[in-house]
């Protein structure tokens, strides 16, 4: 299960499961876990760039949510509340582990799909394509890690998770203007780092 948290009725569905959980049905929490585990993993992983740390962090996120779920009053969407827990825990983790940060990347789940998505030359040798993809993956992670943690958060939520400015502002407890400003700065930094791979002059600084 990998539902889009922004889909229509998703929050109502979440609230129904939450009511069941609060009524004592602990299995209702499994639904929440299965629904959000992949997108939360993606957020955490792209912020820490280490798959083992991301898995441990995700466990902590669900435990924290499990323990404090009764404090959720329904004033915001459930996924906003859950994403906020994930981001706060991850930012704390990054802050505490600045000096021992290490990169351990996940392999690309579907290399053929990525090659097609990027419109890579179909006539190129598979080995060359794999090498280019590996190179792109490493360069992307390196560029993301060079951003400050708060700029990285905004880029991950907007560009990778596809959240709107408003949703990001709700999650980060800031204004939409702040989100736009951070996003602009982060994109400029990324363009500078990824210059050798960008095609349009407009994409360059």
């Amino acid at each position: 299960m990998n539902a889009d948290p922004k889909s229509n009725g998703s929050n109502d569905e979440d609230l129904q499961w939450l009511e069941r959980f609060k009524a004592g049905n602990t299995h209702a929490f499994d639904f929440i876990v299965r629904k959000y585990q992949r997108c939360l993993y993606r957020i955490i992983y792209n912020m820490v760039s280490n798959k083992e740390d991301a898995a441990d962090m995700l466990q902590n996120v669900f435990i924290k949510a499990f323990q404090s779920i009764k404090q959720f009053k329904g004033e915001s969407n459930f996924y906003t509340w859950l994403y906020r827990i994930a981001i706060n825990l991850t930012l704390n983790f990054i802050e505490k582990n600045k000096k021992r940060a290490s990169i351990a990347l996940e392999p690309l789940a579907n290399e053929e799909g990525v090659a097609e998505f990027l419109n890579l030359d179909k006539n190129a040798k598979p080995g060359d394509r794999a090498l280019l993809l590996k190179e792109l993956q490493e360069k992307l992670n390196e560029s993301l890690q060079n951003l400050s943690s708060i700029h990285r958060t905004v880029i991950v939520l907007f560009e990778i998770e596809g959240l709107s400015h408003k949703e990001i502002a709700q999650i980060l407890h800031c204004t939409e203007g702040t989100v736009r400003s951070r996003l602009h700065y982060a994109k400029e930094q990324l363009k500078h780092s990824l210059l050798p791979y960008l095609k349009d002059e407009s994409e360059r600084i």
Binding site: Q37, R38, Y41, R42, Y45, N46, K51, A55, L105, E106, P107, L108, A109, N110, G113, V114, F117, L118, N119, L120, D121, A124, D128, R129, L132, L133, L136, Q137, L140, L144, I155, V156, E159, I160, K187, L190, K191, L194, P196, Y197, L198, K199, D200, E203
Partner: peptide, 26 residues
């Protein structure tokens, strides 16, 4: 192979494909 053929959003979407296997989720 030409390396200067992507835009930023397209490159960042590659990150969505970095996911663990089903065995990991079990």
């Amino acid at each position: 192979m030409n390396r200067k053929e992507f835009n930023l959003s397209q490159l960042l979407q590659v990150k969505r494909y970095e996911m663990p296997t089903e065995a990991f989720w079990d």
